Computed example of a mutant assay.
Amino acid sequence: MLHLPQKPLQVAAALSQHNPTREDQAGPWHAEAVCRRDEAGLFFAPSKEPTAARLSREDAAKRVCARCPVMVDCREHALVQPEPYGVWGGLTAAERRVVLARRRRRDAELRAAATTSGRIAAAG
């Protein structure tokens, strides 16, 4: 998701600091983003948006993301930054927090398993 939210300086700074993970002849991944042609308000919440309106808007934004050829690149950008606002790569900010928490938990479990297997091998 490339649109500038109500906090444009934060997103603009994030995009300028980001080294795209996928560049080809057409340029960085966000050059191919479907959302470049859509209204920014679809991807970022106005202040004091009612819940029903937010859910409807987010659903519409996710439908745009679903047809985007760079959705995975966009999602990874939003997770790596991490982007605190808006719909990026088909995920809301809350959904991205869940994904990040799961990744942290998985990484911690893998580190713990590696430590345990190292102790077992040393004792063997």
Rank of each mutant, 00 (worst) to 15 (best):
R75A: 14
A101G: 11
E83I: 09
R111D: 06
S56D: 12
A112Y: 04
Y85L: 14
P69A: 04
C35D: 15
A26P: 05
A12I: 08
S117R: 10
V87S: 00
G124Q: 15
E95K: 00
E95L: 02
F43D: 03
R105Y: 05
R22S: 13
A60P: 01
Q25K: 15
R36A: 10
A26K: 03
A12E: 14
A60R: 14
N19I: 15
T115V: 12
A113H: 04
A52C: 06
C65W: 05
P84N: 08
E39C: 04
E58Y: 09
G41V: 06
R106Y: 05
R22I: 14
R111I: 01
F44H: 09
M71D: 06
E49P: 02
V98Q: 08
L4W: 07
T51R: 12
R111Y: 02
R103P: 06
A52L: 01
R37N: 12
T51P: 03
L42I: 09
G86N: 12
R96Y: 01
V87M: 01
R97E: 01
T115W: 15
H77C: 00
G27P: 08
L100G: 02
D73E: 15
L4N: 13
S117H: 02
K62M: 12
V87R: 01
D24W: 11
L42V: 07
D59F: 03
S56W: 05
P50R: 07
V70N: 09
L100F: 08
R105T: 12
R67W: 00
I120C: 05
R54E: 13
Q25P: 00
A12L: 15
A61T: 10
D38V: 00
A45C: 07
R96G: 02
H3C: 15
D107V: 01
R97K: 09
W29V: 06
W29N: 11
A123E: 11
E109I: 15
R102K: 11
V11T: 11
H30Y: 10
P8Y: 04
R63F: 04
N19Y: 08
E95G: 01
D59G: 15
W29Q: 12
G124E: 15
R75W: 11
A33F: 12
A14W: 00
R103K: 07
V72H: 10
R106P: 05
C68Q: 05
V80P: 01
R104A: 08
A31Y: 10
Q25E: 12
E109T: 09
P8G: 00
L91A: 08
C65H: 05
K62L: 09
D24L: 09
T115P: 00
G41H: 08
P28G: 08
N19H: 03
G90Q: 07
A52Y: 09
R22E: 12
A33M: 15
L15E: 00
V72K: 04
N19G: 14
G124M: 14
K48W: 00
T21Y: 08
R111G: 06
G86H: 08
T92C: 03
R22T: 15
E83L: 02
D73P: 08
E58M: 11
R103E: 07
K48I: 00
G86R: 03
R36I: 00
H77Y: 04
V11H: 13
P84K: 01
A93M: 08
R97D: 05
A112K: 12
A26W: 14
V34A: 13
A108Y: 02
V70W: 08
E95Y: 01
V72E: 13
M71F: 02
A26N: 11
A45H: 09
A14R: 00
G89H: 03
R57L: 10
R119C: 11
C35H: 09
M71G: 04
R75K: 14
